[in-house]
Design a protein around this nucleic acid. Structure first.
Lengths: 249, 249
DNA sequence: TCCGCTGTGCGTACAGTGTTCGCATCGAAG
DNA sequence: CTTCGATGCGAACACTGTACGCACAGCGGA
């Protein structure tokens, strides 16, 4: 008994009293808490800053403890995607103005994608597997909307529209991520890069940037982005409207 | 001299003769060779299988030797993107049928993106920096095409169209990557997953998959994808055509 | 012929990553 | 009180991108 107490253990003094109580102030480790914190980290620090160790640290837990609630990091990302999908608002089907409803849904997707700039990246990385409940109900509501609008092949129309919406949102999110990393405001960032951009475009006859656009980009870049998105959205909606069997306008 | 020859060195016998000649059979290490091999690896093994060590090994070189020709892995990816961009064919501006020309350019982008399924991922990851020469000339040719077609704001039209094209291609590329990882043919993969998909859609009234589509998906899935892409492309082009000042049809 | 220089390859090392394994500890059930 | 399943976690493994400094090849000039 008087043998040296193998002092290699986690506690220098192997006494029950020296050991700290289990912390119950923190809301404990649970799948939901993990996903919530992961989303917060992704939003704040970007997609490549999220590591299981850092996430564990923020939850006052060891890195490997997370694996009791989540099979793998990829699965965690799927859960995060599904969680965030719930933020997208799709108006109920059957309203009088299908274009307004679809515009609302598309805009809601965009603002969600810009609030969580990693969303479209993760969505694009895995071609499948996103059959989470929130994602399913999002799809269902969209399908209902387009069916009620009278589209003979609603899934085609949805695929077309959201290819545009996702593509555009993804580009915007990537841009905003770059801006955020620079630490400057968007307008300052643009102003600083403009000379280089114009020098690069100098050799190409058709790439000149009109003065009015330079003006707006350095004044209210967010408004310019809003307008660009709205423009493309109208284009796609116009094209889709032509597929409507008469009278749907 | 009879002391034990510190056998920790790279060569067991530290003799000039034991050392192997510098290999000159291999075409030497150069930036171009590195980029070419990187693209080959990306195409064959996917984006997350590319590591500097494996790439070095394939070039009969040490991992860190690559850094003499390439500043960082991100830079290497930019170079790969630009290299691959040269494969996209954009018809010359001023032809009689702008729709056919734009359709050709969009289709060429798509096939390139499907041949290199990592393209859209990398494109989306960095919002900027892709001002490589090939990418610039690609943009220039597109701008020329849309300007000649008579669009008052060609950059808006291009942005709209390619948001759709990139969004759609990205989704397809991700899907094909998933299929490839399964080791099955696309049709088999679909057939195996269909029951699960239908079970998942059972609770949602508007998500049923029409029988004709199930039929085609399990028979000639590539043709179905072609058709979906073409459908959305026509939609967008119809919408764009409405912005043409009269007579452009 | 020799010297130094510059460009190139690379072995070693560092700080990180996702994930596995086995041990310690807990609350609840028998 | 004992037993058991669930949970936390330290250590370890096989990787990753990349900085650093040494070794050496070829070359221009003395």
């Amino acid at each position: 008994m008087t043998r040296s107490t193998k002092s290699k253990g986690p506690n220098p003094i192997p006494s029950v009293w020296a050991r700290e109580q289990r912390r119950t102030d923190q809301p404990a480790l649970s799948r939901d808490a993990i996903v919530r914190e992961a989303i917060a980290m992704l939003d704040a620090e970007g997609i490549e800053a999220l590591s299981m160790r850092k996430l564990g640290a923020r939850l006052n837990a060891g890195a490997t403890s997370l694996y009791r609630h989540v099979a793998t990091k990829d699965e965690l990302m799927e859960l995060a995607v599904d969680e965030v999908t719930a933020e997208i608002h799709v108006p109920p089907a059957g309203g009088p103005d299908w274009r307004a409803a679809v515009t609302e849904a598309a805009g809601s997707f965009r603002t969600t994608a810009l609030r969580h700039p990693w969303l479209t990246l993760v969505l694009g990385q895995a071609g499948l597997a996103y059959l989470g409940p929130n994602y399913m109900s999002f799809s269902e509501r969209l399908a209902a909307l387009f069916t009620a609008a009278g589209f003979p092949e609603p899934s085609r129309a949805i695929e077309t529209l959201f290819s545009y919406v996702i593509g555009m949102s993804n580009a915007e999110a990537a841009w905003l991520t770059t801006v955020a990393r620079s630490g400057e405001t968007e307008a300052d960032f643009i102003a600083r890069l403009m000379p280089a951009a114009q020098r690069a475009a100098a050799d190409h006859a058709h790439l000149a940037i009109p003065h009015t656009e330079v003006e707006e980009a350095t004044t209210d870049p967010a408004a310019l982005r809003d307008m660009k998105f709205a423009y493309g959205l109208e284009v796609v909606l116009d094209g889709l409207a032509l597929r409507l069997p008469r009278k749907g306008r």
